[in-house]
Design a protein around this nucleic acid. Structure first.
Length: 482
RNA sequence: CGGGACGUAGCGCAGCCCGGUAGCGCACUGCAAUGGGGUUGCAGGGGUCGCGGGUUCAAAUCCCGCCGUCCCGACCA
């Protein structure tokens, strides 16, 4: 009996476990449309928390939100050679409208560079118009062959920032700044440690000069690209004639950047922290940070307990803590506990007659030490410190798991063994040749996730390429990826 | 597009080999007791057995065709 209620264990079948966590927490569901996901209220609530935090960070760095069309004339995509090559195979195309065949088919945006830069061409005349710092919250469509809830769906929600600058240095600074914001968000809000770094040519965005990314390691030791920031150079400016007059009077193309994170982050959140009881959500992103479960038998107990629980609810909410009172009748407390655990609520307060009599409350944590009786007075402060501790503990635990699954300075044999076995991040010397990178992928399925930033590099960078033995030009972080 | 499996109640499945009145678990509805870690009992609602054709007195079951889904590979935030 009991076994049938336990989740598929993580180690046994990570994929089945992942789907079960999502189902139990009621985060998302498959839709009637193949490859498209329905994000249920519980899942969307996490996205809303993410949106709020990110939006604040964007606005603090001078960005504004705007909105551009869903449809893009097919010819727009073709204007940038690399871009069309990268995205054409995975677009959905509208050929009919109003009952008639369209003169020019419309692509459902896989990303919005082309439509946005066609507008920037109109908006930008002078160096005084720069920089343009715009973000859009939108949905995009990419016709992927195989899909997976949150990680790769035909349609997904994201934000895409698109900026235009007067100089290459400004664009590069913006690209790096936004990468830094993504890193901070991942660490401080999601409690998900990431490696920042640059992508190789083969992994960079179609049409970009340089792509940077944050890469996280999931509990099954596969890597997840969690956010990207691209320096587009003048590639799109040339394609869309986005020019401006400099202070000196000459005409120049602008320098663009684009950067984005998507609902994929929710998948990353799940695969980073959750356990065999279901979702584990870091307090800062939780829809409900605290849920109060009242316990009572008689009507008399019920009145007293609900009165106390209601008072606590008010106090916690007044202290800015997202609190829910689960006063559902006809459901045993134990059943509620399991439900809220599966949904990832960080803290649970159990309020029963004995607690009311003693002016205490039972505090149960989603992770860490289990239950503890605490005084009702001063509860909001206690909850705040509990949440802060949990947020830190989750990040620390994730860092620890990542380090345990990281291997530095591996030989070719050790590398192959790792990739065929436990997986994880392998730091190794890289000769910089695309052919070498491709050969590794063919043999091991592993790819270079990033050429890590200085802060993440090994103290001693290997002198030779792990694979071919040639001179190494950089250190690479390899992994099998989602 | 190549290789494999499956399609029976909202979900998960049994029944098919060997044809004979549509079943189980979960979920749902009602009543009662229960209630500090997934309660129990009783009663109840819900199904064109993927679609079309064939064989037969009789098809979820056998035969033929079609459609769809999932898994493995090529694609990928």
């Amino acid at each position: 009996m009991a076994e049938s209620k336990a989740l598929t264990t993580r180690a046994a079948d990570f994929s089945a476990w992942y789907n079960e966590v999502i189902a139990r927490a009621e985060l998302a569901d498959y839709s009637p449309v193949r490859g498209c996901m329905v994000i249920r209220p519980n899942g969307y609530a996490i996205w809303e928390q993410m949106q709020q935090a990110l939006d604040r960070m964007f606005k603090d760095t001078g960005h504004q939100n705007a909105y551009f069309p869903l449809f893009i004339p097919q010819s727009f995509l073709s204007r940038e050679a690399e871009h069309v090559e990268g995205f054409a195979p995975e677009t959905a195309v509208v050929t009919h409208g109003g009952g008639k065949e369209l003169e020019e088919p419309l692509v459902v945006r896989p990303t919005s560079e082309t439509i946005i830069y066609s507008m920037y061409a109109k908006w930008i005349q002078s160096y005084r118009d720069l920089p343009v710092l715009i973000n859009q919250w939108a949905n995009v469509v990419r016709w992927e062959m195989r899909t997976r809830l949150f990680l790769r769906t035909t349609e997904f929600l994201w934000q895409e920032g698109h900026t235009a600058h007067a100089t290459e240095a400004d664009a590069e600074a913006e690209t790096r700044q936004m990468l830094g914001i993504y890193r901070r968000f991942a660490e401080e809000w999601m409690a998900m440690p990431v490696i920042t770094g640059r992508k190789t040519e083969s992994e960079k965005f179609a049409g970009a000069l340089r792509t940077y990314a944050i890469e996280a390691l999931m509990q099954d030791n596969r890597a997840l690209q969690a956010g990207t920031s691209h320096n587009l150079g003048q590639n799109f400016a040339r394609a869309f004639e986005v020019t401006y007059q400099t202070a000196e009077g000459s005409i120049d193309y602008v320098w663009n950047t684009s950067w984005g994170v998507s609902t994929r982050l929710i998948g990353g959140l799940i695969m980073t922290h959750s356990d065999d009881s279901g979702l584990v959500c870091p307090p800062r992103l939780a829809q409900w940070q605290v849920v109060i479960v009242p316990i009572h038998r008689t009507d008399e107990e019920r009145t007293g307990v609900l009165e106390a629980a209601g008072r606590l609810l008010g106090e916690l909410r007044a202290a800015g803590i997202r609190t829910h009172l689960d006063a559902r009748e006809g459901m045993k407390p134990g059943a509620k506990y399991y439900e809220w655990e599966a949904r990832g609520v960080p803290l649970r307060l159990e309020v029963g007659p004995r607690d009311v009599a003693a002016s205490t409350v039972m505090l149960a944590r989603r992770v860490g030490p289990k239950k503890e009786s605490v005084p009702m007075s001063g509860l909001p402060a206690r909850i705040h410190s509990e949440m802060a501790a949990m947020q830190d503990a989750l990040l620390a635990a994730a860092c620890e798991r990542r380090e345990a699954a990281s291997l530095r300075g591996a030989t070719r044999e050790e590398f192959v063994e790792r990739m065929q076995g436990v997986g994880g991040f392998v730091y190794a010397g890289f000769c910089g040749r695309a052919s070498c990178e491709a050969e590794v992928k063919e043999h091991t399925k592993a790819t270079i996730r990033v050429l890590p930033d200085e802060e993440f590099r090994s103290a001693e960078i290997p002198a030779t390429c792990m694979w071919c033995g040639g001179a190494s030009v950089a250190e690479a972080v390899w992994a099998k990826a989602y």
